[in-house]
Design a protein around this nucleic acid. Structure first.
Lengths: 144, 144
DNA sequence: ACACATCCTACTTAAATAGTAGAATTCTAA
DNA sequence: TTAGAATTCTACTATTTAAGTAGGATGTGT
């Protein structure tokens, strides 16, 4: 049996992979986009944009010029999946009436308080949030 | 805070709404598409296709001609959300490497066994499945 | 100055969702 | 048996989103 409701965009997927790659490095020096791109099979230009977003949201930090590149802004323990996913997944294509921060009334919804869909999806949202909140980057690279 | 990873297509959303509408009826007689469409603000032709799919998968049954329409094929207690969602959500746009039945290797994945994304999403998938499996149509219309 | 690497904006392409059109089929009731 | 009411079915169109690309601007170390 298989449910497809749980999905990640490739953008977020690539973002997580890049972060784990960085977390596994024990080096002090920054890592270039080109290296991550090659090692993880991700389009260089696409990855460029993804890492930029992660830097802007404070998950990553970067250094320009020769010897520059990207590195984690915090320790892997302090980066929760919520941070990553909230940054890379946009408010697009969700069920808006179930969102806490980006709430929007469904245009077809007659009576929200008795809306069955919202009741259902709130439960799913909470369970999902729990997983993301309790999983750090460190967890991802350590547990087998 | 808001996570968008959990999403439903409008198709599934409309499907659930239509089913709850039917479940709330105490009537014996079938309900016409046009009535559901009007009451729940759903495009008639789109709803037509949705209900047809639900009939083919055995959730709904129908009667043609005068006095015809749609009605539940089982009691609301016996219709689990997994039935509905599995019918209406296609195998499209998921994370294929996390799927049980429609499994597919990610083309970018270097080493699947240590893939961080898959580890994360398997957890989310299981939590989500749990909710859908444990929620029947009856639950949706009864709990406030 | 020069090479290197991130930064940034705008564009293109491909795919999926959402919705529409119109006719065929089936059933009921008068 | 005929008219009308309803589902059924196929194919098409439009809209939106994700995914990926191009090319130059900006900053940095040697």
């Amino acid at each position: 049996m298989c449910i497809f409701v749980v999905m990640l965009s490739k953008k977020t997927k690539y973002g997580i992979k890049a972060l784990t790659y960085l977390a596994k490095q024990n080096r002090e020096c920054p890592v270039q986009i080109s290296e991550i791109s090659a090692q993880e099979n991700i389009s260089l230009k696409f990855l460029e944009r993804i890492l930029l977003e992660l830097r802007k949201s404070g998950v990553l930090d970067s250094k320009k010029g020769k010897g520059g590149g990207y590195f984690l802004a915090k320790t892997p323990q302090d980066i929760a999946m919520t941070d990553v996913i909230r940054t890379l997944e946009g408010p697009i294509a969700m069920v808006p009436c179930v969102s806490l921060n980006f709430y929007e009334k469904c245009d077809d919804c007659v009576d929200e308080k008795t809306c069955a869909v919202s009741k259902l999806m709130i439960q799913v949202r909470d369970k999902t949030l729990e997983v993301f909140r309790n999983t750090s980057l460190q967890d991802l690279i350590s547990f087998t």
